[in-house]
């Protein structure tokens, strides 16, 4: 299920913790599994749990607790827009609305071509750069006015 490349990365995470505390690597391992698969399937969660010697339900608790794990398939690009108050004051909500209109979808929906999933998100710790959005949990885009959003969408193909 997990590629040897993923397992190697997980091993590197495990090494950060005391030998009897493998479970500490579960967040990283789930993130790696999600990167490999695009989302976190039940099998992937179980695989991670077994690899780390923890109960599958314990890994499932973790996977369902943290927002950045996707337990359902998402589009090729997951675009998360921060709409929390500081961002809202500087256009975060408007940016979300703009994206919805442009893509013809609402939050938690995916474009019919499977390209983009739109998510509303909580504070990303980048309020000074509002409006901000993150692509696939990794790439943060700052100061996203309509022009920048258009550019971004043109790029995500």
């Amino acid at each position: 299920m997990l590629t040897s490349e993923s397992l190697k990365r997980i091993d590197r995470e495990i090494a950060k913790y005391p030998a009897e505390q493998k479970q500490s690597a579960v967040m990283a391992a789930l993130a790696i599994a999600q990167e490999q698969q695009g989302w976190l399937s039940t099998e992937a969660i179980e695989c991670v749990a077994n690899y780390l010697g923890m109960a599958p339900i314990a890994a499932y608790e973790v996977a369902t607790f943290y927002n950045m794990y996707d337990l359902k398939p998402v589009g090729k690009y997951k675009v998360s827009v921060c709409t929390n108050l500081p961002c809202m004051l500087t256009g975060g909500v408007d940016a979300g609305e703009y994206l919805k209109k442009k893509l013809g979808i609402g939050y938690n929906q995916t474009t019919s071509d499977g390209l983009i999933t739109l998510k509303e998100s909580e504070c990303m710790g980048a309020c000074g750069d509002a409006p901000v959005m993150i692509i696939n949990n990794r790439r943060m885009c700052s100061w996203m006015n309509p022009e920048e959003i258009d550019k971004l969408l043109a790029e995500l193909k």
Partner: peptide
């Protein structure tokens, strides 16, 4: 001695 139930989500 076995965790079969958990509290998922938040």
């Amino acid at each position: 001695g076995v965790m079969e139930l958990g509290m998922a989500s938040r």
